[in-house]
């Protein structure tokens, strides 16, 4: 295998990333790095290039069909906020072609233990956000939620709420990625949109319900057992600004 000094770019989509990596493996090229062309910043010492324009999802479909578990690992790393995720996926796939399905038990390889770790982190965060997400009812009867997860888990969340609240219409907005999932009439639409300084008009019951919930939240705690550290362990502070009952507690140093 030859190592070269090129940085390979992909258009930010999952399928283009996979096709780029597959091409590199086929040509037996060990890249310096693989990067998203949207966030890529030019530097003096390396050259960036795009080797394929293939954005079909034929390959991702093939991987999904042959081994759904491996597909899930790759998809999760793609969605993660990990810095060198593209290279990790590259090395993981390189070894996966070599060893086949048993690759997932070979934690001795750094790329394998790393990708398992990342996938676990992404799934964990998605699971937590399914609980911590809070909808607010707007005047238009849309349910509206703001989230700011570390990883890009909007897809997991919208699938979850499509099954859970099929009769409602709702919007989940990812503040960090400026991405929005809209569910309306049995369909999910995901779009990139920046909604800075938006004014929300809430329905007339909204404030009352929030107050009722906060009352319940405060009442249900047993004061003889109070344990703020444990609370924070399970519900990290980074999520608090979007959790209705915790919002006012950010300033308090409990």
């Amino acid at each position: 295998m030859k190592t070269n000094n090129y940085i390979y770019l992909y258009d930010g989509s999952f399928s283009h990333l996979l096709n780029t990596i597959a091409n590199l493996i086929k040509e037996q090229i060990k890249p310096l790095n693989i990067q998203n062309e949207i966030t890529y910043q030019n530097d003096l010492f390396s050259t960036a290039l795009k080797i394929t324009n293939d954005t079909t999802d034929k390959l991702s479909y093939k991987i999904k069909k042959t081994n759904p578990y491996i597909y899930d690992l790759i998809l999760c790393s793609y969605l993660s906020a990990e810095e060198n995720k593209e290279l990790i996926i590259y090395y993981f796939l390189l070894n996966a072609y070599k060893y086949g399905a048993k690759i997932i038990y070979m934690r001795k390889l750094k790329c394998v233990s790393k990708i398992l770790e990342i996938a676990k982190y992404v799934h964990n965060e998605a699971h937590k956000m399914k609980g911590f997400l809070r909808f607010q009812e707007l005047k238009s009867h849309f349910l509206f939620a703001l989230v700011a997860p570390t990883n890009d888990i909007l897809g997991f969340l919208s699938n979850h709420f499509q099954k859970r609240l099929p009769k409602e219409k709702w919007i989940i907005y990812d503040e960090k990625r400026k991405k929005m999932a809209i569910y309306y009439q049995n369909k999910i639409y995901i779009t990139n949109i920046d909604i800075k300084n938006i004014k929300l008009l809430f329905s007339k019951d909204e404030k009352e319900m929030e107050q009722l919930w906060i009352t319940f939240f405060e009442t249900v705690a047993i004061k003889e057992r109070k344990n703020y550290r444990c609370q924070r362990n399970f519900m990290p502070k980074k999520y608090w600004h979007n959790i209705i009952e915790m919002r006012d507690k950010i300033e308090n140093n409990n």
């Binding site: 699971h127 937590k128 399914k130 609980g131 911590f132 099954k163 859970r164 609240l165 099929p166 009769k167 409602e168 319940f216 939240f217 249900v220 705690a221 047993i222 004061k223 057992r225 109070k226 344990n227 703020y228 550290r229 444990c230 609370q231 362990n233 399970f234 519900m235 959790i243 009952e245 915790m246 409990n254």
Partner: peptide
Amino acid sequence: RSNCDGTGNASISGICHSFSSDGRCISLLK
């Protein structure tokens, strides 16, 4: 339990929605 033309479903693994100040999880309206 799955959703049939209404509101809600159950998640096999369970979901914690909040944690009270005693560190216990709140998943149900108790």
